[in-house]
Simulated scan of single mutants.
Amino acid sequence: METIWTPHRFSGEVLALDVANTVVLRDDPDRRFDRFEQADEIVRFARAATAFRAEEIGGNTLVVSDPSGAKPRMVALRETTDALFRDASVSGAIRSERLAPLLDQCARALEAAPVMFAAGQAGLRAGQGTIELEAAVAVSALSLLAPEMQRRIRICGNCGWLFLDRSRNGSRVWCDMTVCGNRQKARRHYRRRRDDEGRTVDA
């Protein structure tokens, strides 16, 4: 089934975290699923990311020239990205044993599809035309190693997705307030109502 790549599915705030979040319910083996299971879905993701991450990618166009060949590399890059930054969000530190695999995957992606970095800022230089998705994801992941980016990486309190907290005071709890925030509010309301009804019955 095709994924509808809505704004919510780009709640990571940066391309690398959006890709990490293509695994849904990562910590629930019974319900976990992978939006990149079909190689063609990676192509559709690239098209959507071209629009949703236009500023980060310098207005270039993301492409996947060889979907079947790119899939194992994209999955490997995604998993090393998630492992490193999920652990860093919890521990508050970058572990070398998690950094090395990510750097290896980034090096492979950039060697296979060279790109130009923007001068003086994180991201890709404009005017390159088309850029392979895995190269763009590698650049995005590397940008997250900067201390000012790293310390703003959070894990959503509802869905477990990774996101970059761009709020002024760094206090975001949800990847998407309109989806995850509202779901948590609804759960709290239901629990309060159930508890109130229970107390009424006991009385």
Rank of each mutant, 00 (worst) to 15 (best):
E2C: 00
E2M: 08
T3L: 02
T3F: 10
I4F: 04
W5Q: 00
H8Q: 13
H8G: 08
F10K: 03
F10D: 08
F10Y: 05
G12Y: 05
E13Y: 02
L17G: 04
T22P: 12
V23S: 08
D27V: 01
D30Y: 13
R31Q: 14
R32H: 06
F33I: 06
D34Y: 02
R35C: 09
R35N: 11
F36R: 00
E37Q: 09
I42P: 01
I42N: 02
V43I: 10
A48G: 02
F52C: 09
G58T: 06
N60L: 03
L62I: 02
S65R: 15
M74G: 10
A76R: 13
L77V: 08
L77S: 06
L77E: 08
L77P: 09
R78K: 08
T81Y: 03
T81Q: 04
T81K: 02
D82S: 14
A83P: 08
A83F: 05
A83L: 11
L84K: 06
A88Y: 02
S89M: 02
S91A: 15
S91W: 03
I94R: 07
R95P: 08
R98P: 08
A100I: 14
L103Q: 08
D104W: 10
Q105C: 14
C106I: 00
R108M: 10
A109P: 07
L110S: 12
E111T: 15
E111C: 13
E111R: 15
M116E: 15
M116T: 14
G120P: 04
Q121M: 10
L124D: 08
A126Y: 14
Q128K: 05
T130Y: 06
I131F: 07
E132T: 03
A135I: 01
V139E: 11
L142C: 11
L145C: 06
A146E: 14
Q150Y: 05
C159P: 07
G160F: 09
D165V: 04
R168H: 09
G170S: 03
G170F: 01
V173F: 03
V173I: 13
V173S: 10
W174Q: 02
W174T: 10
C175R: 04
C175D: 02
M177A: 07
V179F: 13
V179K: 11
C180G: 05
C180V: 09
Q184S: 04
Q184L: 11
R187D: 15
Y190C: 00
Y190G: 01
R191W: 05
R192P: 00
R193F: 00
D196K: 09
G198F: 12
R199C: 00
